[in-house]
Amino acid sequence: MTKPKLLCFGHSHLVCIDVAVKWREQSLEGFRDAFDIRFEQLRREPYHPNFVDVGGKRELTTECENAMASAIADFKPDAILAVFSGQEYQIFSILNHPIKFDFVTPNNPAYVPKNSEIIPFVLVKAQLKYLIERSVLIFIDKIKGITNVPVFMVAPPPPIESEEHILTYPGPFAEDAKEFGVSPAPFRRKVWKVYCDILKEEGARHGANVLMPPKTVMDNGYMAQDCWRKDPVHGNVKYGNAIIHMVLNRAFGHAGVNKHD
């Protein structure tokens, strides 16, 4: 029997999924026989650097484009998992901007945050959409131009609520976090939500099935604590495991093993 093939493209948020799949292959009986899963890390050569500026327009580099096309042609996937970028909302929101800003949302239209410059909501949306168009959608369009197999795009992990965790594992943010401070968790969650709403809308418009992280990795709109990695933005192997479980179910109707259903 032919195993269903899943080709996974992505950036750093793909790593925890990759590790989770390796763990499944080693630890779960029958998993290796159930699926053929291949990972293509776009932060590595020949994909990296991904983009080039052509007359003011951002395009994939020829190397990246060719490598994506080759990966699809060689592997002949039945479905594609896309975990592109996703850091745009973190760049926008993880630390307090030197000129603090906030915004009103349609969900709570009467609440105007204090002590910050208010950026109109339509502008926040337009900015995040602009960032998505300049990264995620370029990849999606490329894939859809090559193959008709279903593309499942997973939204980036939600923010980590704990400021303490971010300050304990700030990585390169250490200096700036000290100077500007981690932005309030509800603000980061709000930005993530807007980002995901745009991703769902635009992803669908560009032919991808956009999946949100499952409830099992969420806690009140934040990343569940047992999914935190020792850095301020990524999910761990448990997070990756939940994502691949969801994607396999959605793509092929099962995840290979019953006990993790």
């Binding site: 990759d18 390169p172 990524h234 761990n236």
Partner: peptide
């Protein structure tokens, strides 16, 4: 400039995530 710095920092974290891939990622 602030957003550019944040993007740079995110890039470093993402690279580290890749470097750590051989380990547990947990």
């Amino acid at each position: 400039a602030f957003a550019e710095k944040m993007a740079e920092n995110i890039g470093v974290i993402c690279d580290e995530e890749l470097l750590d891939q051989g380990e547990s990622a947990g």
